[in-house]
Amino acid sequence: MGMPNRKYADGEVVMGRWPGSVLYYEVQVTSYDDASHLYTVKYKDGTELALKESDIRLQS
């Protein structure tokens, strides 16, 4: 078993793309699913969504 190939840690605050949009919002990573390679993130309004790594970026 190798290390999970994840870029962002639980609790890390990053920018997540809103689905169907080009806009990124501040989100907190809450979990990562090794099987689906999706991150569960929480937006400031409390919305929780699963995002692909390509829809997440570090805060500038």
Rank of each mutant, 00 (worst) to 15 (best):
L38Y: 11
A35N: 12
M1R: 09
V22C: 15
G20Y: 07
M15W: 15
R17W: 03
E48V: 14
P4R: 04
V13C: 10
L51D: 00
N5A: 14
Y25A: 07
P19T: 04
Q59T: 13
T40Y: 13
S21E: 06
Q59R: 14
L58I: 13
V27F: 13
D33V: 03
K44G: 08
S21M: 06
M15H: 07
D10F: 04
S60K: 10
Y25Q: 09
Y43P: 01
T47H: 06
G20T: 04
S54H: 10
K44I: 10
E12R: 05
Y32T: 00
S60G: 13
Y24V: 02
R6A: 04
R17H: 03
Q59V: 14
Y43Q: 07
D34P: 11
D34A: 11
V29F: 00
N5I: 15
R57G: 07
Y25M: 10
L49S: 06
H37E: 15
Y8C: 02
Y8E: 01
Y8H: 04
A35I: 14
M1K: 12
A50K: 15
L38E: 08
G46L: 04
K44H: 11
G16S: 06
Q59C: 15
E48D: 05
M15E: 09
V27S: 03
E48C: 12
R17G: 02
Q28S: 09
P4A: 12
N5K: 07
T30F: 09
K44Q: 10
L51A: 02
L51C: 04
Y39I: 01
V13H: 09
L49Y: 15
Y43T: 14
E12G: 03
G11K: 04
L51F: 02
R57P: 02
R57D: 06
E48Q: 11
I56K: 00
Y43W: 12
S60A: 12
A35V: 14
V41W: 01
S21F: 04
R57L: 10
V13E: 05
H37C: 13
W18N: 04
N5V: 13
S21H: 06
V13D: 04
A9W: 08
A35T: 12
G16P: 01
V27M: 13
W18F: 11
D34M: 08
V13R: 10
T30E: 10
V29Y: 00
W18R: 11
Q59G: 12
K7T: 08
T40L: 13
K52N: 10
R17S: 03
V41S: 01
P4N: 13
T30H: 08
L38F: 10
G20L: 06
M1G: 15
R57V: 10
E53W: 05
E26Y: 10
G16H: 03
M15T: 04
V22H: 14
L23P: 02
A35E: 13
V14H: 02
G20W: 06
L38S: 07
